[in-house]
Simulated scan of single mutants.
Amino acid sequence: MQTIQQEIDERTNLTSSNKLELLLFRLGDDANLDRSELFGINVFKIREIIPMPAITAVAGSPAHMMGVVDLRGQIIPVINLPAIAGCTPRTGLNILLITEYARSTQAFAVESVEDIVRLDWRQVLSAEGNAAGGMVTSLARLDGDNSDRLAQVLDVETILRQAMPSSEPAVDPANIGPAVDIKPGTVILAADDSVIARTMIEQGLEAMGLPYLMCKTGKEAWDQLQAISAKAQDEGKTVHDRIALVLTDLEMPEMDGFTLTRNIKQDPRFSSIPVVIHSSLTGSTNEAHVKKVGADAYVAKFVAEDLADALRHALAKVH
Rank of each mutant, 00 (worst) to 15 (best):
residue 165 P to E: 08
residue 50 I to R: 01
residue 314 A to C: 08
residue 176 I to L: 03
residue 112 S to N: 15
residue 303 V to K: 14
residue 103 R to G: 03
residue 25 F to H: 00
residue 132 A to G: 07
residue 269 R to I: 05
residue 208 M to K: 06
residue 57 A to P: 01
residue 299 V to K: 00
residue 186 T to R: 01
residue 268 P to H: 13
residue 185 G to Y: 10
residue 277 I to M: 07
residue 226 Q to C: 02
residue 147 S to T: 06
residue 315 L to I: 11
residue 288 A to V: 12
residue 50 I to T: 08
residue 259 T to H: 04
residue 60 G to N: 06
residue 262 R to V: 07
residue 270 F to Q: 01
residue 108 F to W: 10
residue 299 V to R: 01
residue 205 L to H: 15
residue 51 P to I: 10
residue 309 D to W: 09
residue 11 R to T: 15
residue 34 D to Q: 14
residue 289 H to T: 14
residue 242 R to F: 12
residue 145 D to T: 08
residue 4 I to K: 15
residue 153 V to D: 05
residue 288 A to D: 09
residue 60 G to Y: 06
residue 128 E to Y: 09
residue 106 Q to G: 13
residue 274 P to Q: 04
residue 109 A to P: 04
residue 114 E to L: 09
residue 167 S to M: 00
residue 188 I to D: 04
residue 100 E to Y: 11
residue 39 F to L: 05
residue 148 D to T: 14
residue 204 G to T: 15
residue 20 L to M: 12
residue 50 I to E: 11
residue 107 A to R: 05
residue 33 L to Q: 15
residue 280 S to Q: 10
residue 113 V to Q: 02
residue 21 E to W: 04
residue 231 K to L: 07
residue 176 I to K: 03
residue 112 S to W: 11
residue 5 Q to R: 06
residue 196 I to D: 12
residue 126 S to F: 02
residue 216 K to Y: 15
residue 121 W to D: 12
residue 315 L to E: 03
residue 203 Q to A: 14
residue 123 Q to Y: 10
residue 297 A to P: 05
residue 250 L to H: 03
residue 219 K to S: 13
residue 273 I to C: 07
residue 209 G to Y: 00
residue 157 E to F: 05
residue 132 A to Y: 05
residue 34 D to W: 08
residue 27 L to F: 07
residue 155 D to A: 00
residue 316 A to C: 07
residue 127 A to W: 12
residue 196 I to N: 12
residue 130 N to R: 14
residue 73 G to Q: 02
residue 162 Q to R: 06
residue 250 L to W: 03
residue 122 R to W: 01
residue 239 V to K: 09
residue 28 G to S: 11
residue 207 A to F: 03
residue 267 D to F: 01
residue 90 R to I: 13
residue 284 S to N: 14
residue 214 M to W: 14
residue 96 L to M: 04
residue 226 Q to M: 02
residue 134 G to N: 05
residue 79 I to W: 06
residue 18 N to Q: 03
residue 38 L to M: 07
residue 278 H to C: 01
residue 221 A to T: 09
residue 58 V to I: 11
residue 224 Q to M: 02
residue 17 S to C: 08
residue 281 L to R: 02
residue 243 I to M: 13
residue 28 G to D: 06
residue 196 I to W: 11
residue 178 P to M: 08
residue 129 G to N: 01
residue 219 K to W: 15
residue 161 R to V: 09
residue 271 S to I: 14
residue 16 S to T: 13
residue 111 E to R: 10
residue 277 I to V: 05
residue 47 R to K: 03
residue 205 L to G: 06
residue 244 A to L: 05
residue 2 Q to T: 12
residue 286 N to C: 07
residue 312 R to S: 02
residue 120 D to R: 01
residue 318 V to D: 09
residue 306 D to Y: 06
residue 25 F to S: 03
residue 161 R to H: 07
residue 172 D to T: 09
residue 38 L to K: 02
residue 154 L to T: 15
residue 78 V to R: 01
residue 60 G to R: 04
residue 276 V to D: 11
residue 233 Q to S: 11
residue 119 L to C: 08
residue 46 I to C: 00
residue 218 G to H: 08
residue 168 E to A: 02
residue 216 K to R: 14
residue 164 M to H: 01
residue 198 R to V: 15
residue 42 N to Y: 00
residue 12 T to L: 05
residue 307 L to M: 12
residue 53 P to M: 00
residue 227 A to E: 13
residue 29 D to A: 10
residue 289 H to V: 13
residue 94 N to F: 06
residue 14 L to E: 07
residue 259 T to W: 08
residue 299 V to I: 00
